[in-house]
Amino acid sequence: MKGHQIQSKIISMEVEVLDAVRQRTLDQFTEGPSVKESRLFFLLLPFFDGKNWSPEIESSAKTVSIVYAALHAHDQVREDVPIIKEQQLTVLAGDLYSGIYYQMLVNSKNIAMVQRLATAIIQVSEKKTSFFETAIRPIEETEEAITVIETELLISFYRFYNFSEYAPLAKQTLLYLRYADELKHLQSKNYTHFLRELNSNLVHEIYTEHWLMEKLDSLHRQILVSIGDCSLDHELAQFLLHQITPHQHRAEQLTREG
């Protein structure tokens, strides 16, 4: 499959997801659902790679994307803001998307997938809440929490349809993208809960920056190995690498500056 065909399929899936959750008031007052291209790429990866694909699987893939959007909406709820429409509707957007994913799977008679995703949401919610626990934990547990948050929904989808061979590659890439984002946040002194925890664990943010850069390097190497393990064709591998390239340049630049 050519790069432009991959891109076109991702865009068409994105449009379908946005159409499924469209609601006039929410469109007007909220930032709208977050549908990340990288997640869509991994949801569609088995299809791109020529695996047995069906309308049911594609519909499930869409619902996974909707669940990500639902949970993301709730991440946007801020503390200590006055009662404003945007915040109130952001809460409801997440709830509405949850209802929509449930209904879509019910309509395609895929109750087992509802259950699988519900279990994944439980794990993700537990890990998100873990950033508000007061007890200090080892850095490996923080890493484990962020991995579950970023990848559990997708991995559940892979397990459900026997696509687990892509799980290592998806985990490494999504984690790579998350760490790259966190590095940007760190550079702009925009501290997320994850960064605050790393900073307190590693004592100073300079060590957090090194830790993130080392992780990015290591994940990049792992991604290259995993691409080989999955025997992805050249176009597909290039498309994937293209997604992480801008971040990689940034990491290399930071390494040089550092």
């Binding site: 639902a70 949970l71 709730h74 991440d75 709820v77 801020r78 503390e79 809460v91 997440g94 709830d95 949850s98 949401i121 439980i122 993700v124 919610s125 537990e126 998100k128 809440t129 508000f132």
Partner: peptide, 10 residues
Amino acid sequence: NSVAMYTGDF
């Protein structure tokens, strides 16, 4: 608020 959101989702 965040804990409330995740509790509801959970």
